[in-house]
Design a protein around this nucleic acid. Structure first.
Lengths: 258, 258
DNA sequence: ATTATTATTTCGCTCTGTGAAATAACCGCT
DNA sequence: AGCGGTTATTTCACAGAGCGAAATAATAAT
C-alpha cells in the first residue's frame, strides 16, 4: 500500500530526534521522547552505529554520525539551486560586503541552504541548515509572495506567530499587507523583526512557471542597511535574485526589457 | 544479538548508494546496485520519502532529501572539534590568505570537516564532506603520524595506492619515510602529489592522550607556497594545529615551554 | 551500602516486512 | 498508432524478522 516500514520509520524518528539544541541523546531519553521500548531503541541504535550513521560518545550518549554529515553534504551538492546560485551569492557578497543568504521554504518555515559571509566577521547571522520563521524574516516574506491570497491567508492562519522583538508583526492582516507590498515591490524587508538591531532585505527566486522556489537575502546591522545605501542594496538583492531566477529558467518581462 | 535490523540496514544502504558522482538514482538502479528486490526498494523509498529523507525528482528518480541536509548540518555542528577549530581556521586563513582545511580520518581516507577559503577565489580546492586519500595528501600524512610503525605498515599495505600525478609516492617504503619525517618535523607536505600545481602543508591535531584526532592544512598553487614563504606558512599551520590541540586538551612539551 | 535509573541481553510469539507475481505506466522503435 | 522492453507500483500469502516483557548487568545518585 503506502510507505510504512515500521523499523525504518522508527530509525528515522530517532535520527530526527537530534537537533541543534539537543545534539546528543541517551537510549532512555530517546525511548521516552519517542514512546518506543528501550530495547527497540537500543537495537536500532546499534544497527545505525554499525553503519556510522550514529556515533556513540564517550559519555555513553549517542549523536549523529559522520556518515550523516557526509550524506548531508551530498544532499546539498546535488541541489541544482545551490550550484546555480553560489556564484551569484558570492558576487552579491563581494559588491555589498554584507552577509548573503539563500533559503527555501520547508513546511511552515524557511531553511538556510547556503550563505556567504565575511569569515572574519564577529557575528554569525545564520547557520546553514537552520530554520527561520516565514512571518518575521525578509526571506520568509519573499517566499510568501509566491502564494495566492487565499493560500496565504490559510498559511498565515495555520502558523503560530511568536513575537521575537517589539517589531515583529503579529497581526495577520498587517502581515498580508507586508507580503502584498513585497510582491509588488519585488523585495521584502525584515525591520528588526527577528532580532533588534538586525535588518534584512530579501527577494524571491522564481522558476519559469513564475513559481517561487527560493529567496535570497542580505542581512546586517541597522546602521549599515539604511539611508541611501538601503536602496542600493535593495537593488543589488533584487538583481541577484533575478539573475538566479533566469538561470533557473525564469524570464520576467522586466528581465526581458533589460 | 548485535545490531542488525534488516529493514534499517537496507534503508541505510540505499542512502549510502547516493554519492557526489551519482546523486540521483532510480528504483531499478538501486535494486541492481544493492541486489535487493525492486519491490522492497520501492517500499523503503516510499517510507523515506514520506519523512523527507528522500526526494522524488520530476524525472522520477530519487535523491537525498532536505532532511538529510538538515541532519548533516546538525551532525557537523555537534562536533566539538569543528566548534573549537573554527576560529583558529579563520585566523590561519586571515594571516595566510590561503585556503585552510580541517579533516579527520575515516577508514582508509580523510574527510573534510570544514574549510576557510576566499569566497571570491576562482578555484575550489576542496569541498566539505569530500574524501581524500591518506597516502598522497598533506592532511593524510599528518593523520598517519598518529600510527605506530607496525600499524602504519599494515594500514599502508591495505590501501590501494593510485598515482594521481607523477609526484604521487607509490612506494610504501618511501611513504613510511615521509610519514616518519612528518612525525619528527610536526608537519607533512603534499608536493603536487594529488594535483599538479597544487601544494599543501598539513599538521596533526592531538588529544590529551597524544592521540591524533584530526589535521589542519593550507593548500595553494605551488607559486605561492614556496621559497621563504613556505617556511612561514609551515610555522603558521603548525602553530594553529597546536592551538587547536591545546583547546582539545593536548599539552605538548613544546606548548608548555612557549 | 542501598536504591534508582539506565543500558544490554535473552527469548518466545506475533505481526511485519518480504519477494513472487500481476498490473500498470512508460519508454524508444518502426 | 502499435509493439516489445524496461521500469514503477500494487497485491498478497507466508516465513521469519523484529518486537517487547522480563531478566540481568552496569551506572549513577543518595
Amino acid at each position: 500500500m503506502s510507505g510504512h516500514v515500521r523499523a525504518v520509520q522508527r530509525a528515522l524518528a530517532i535520527l530526527k530526534a537530534f537537533s541543534l539544541e539537543n545534539p546528543q541523546l541517551s537510549c532512555s531519553e530517546l525511548s521516552r521522547k519517542l514512546k518506543i521500548h528501550p530495547s527497540t531503541i537500543h537495537r536500532l541504535l546499534l544497527t545505525m552505529e554499525k553503519e556510522k550513521i550514529i556515533d556513540r560518545l564517550e559519555n555513553g550518549k549517542y549523536a549523529l554520525g559522520l556518515k550523516v554529515f557526509e550524506l548531508g553534504c551530498i544532499a546539498a551538492a546535488q541541489r541544482e539551486l545551490v550550484k546555480v546560485a553560489r556564484p551569484y551569492l558570492e558576487e552579491l557578497h563581494r559588491i555589498s560586503g554584507e552577509t548573503v543568504n539563500l533559503v527555501i521554504m520547508d513546511g511552515t518555515e524557511a531553511i538556510y541552504l547556503d550563505k556567504c559571509e565575511n569569515p572574519m566577521s564577529m557575528v554569525q547571522y545564520a547557520r546553514i541548515g537552520k530554520r527561520i520563521p516565514l512571518y518575521c524574516s525578509a526571506v520568509g516574506k519573499a517566499l510568501l509572495t509566491g502564494f495566492h491570497q487565499e493560500d496565504l491567508q490559510r498559511a498565515l492562519n495555520s502558523i503560530k506567530i511568536i513575537p521575537h522583538t517589539p517589531n515583529t508583526i503579529i497581526d495577520v492582516g498587517k502581515l498580508m499587507e507586508a507580503v502584498q507590498m513585497a510582491k509588488i515591490n519585488g523585495y521584502a524587508i525584515d525591520n528588526e523583526e527577528v532580532e533588534l538591531g538586525i535588518k534584512c532585505i530579501g527577494a524571491p527566486v522564481k522558476r519559469e512557471s513564475g513559481h517561487v522556489i527560493a529567496a535570497i537575502s542580505i542581512c546586517g546591522p541597522v546602521s549599515r542597511l539604511s539611508g541611501g545605501r538601503f536602496f542600493e542594496l535593495v537593488h543589488q538583492v533584487k538583481t541577484t535574485a533575478e539573475k538566479v531566477s533566469n538561470r533557473m529558467g525564469y524570464c520576467s518581462l522586466n528581465a526581458l526589457s533589460l
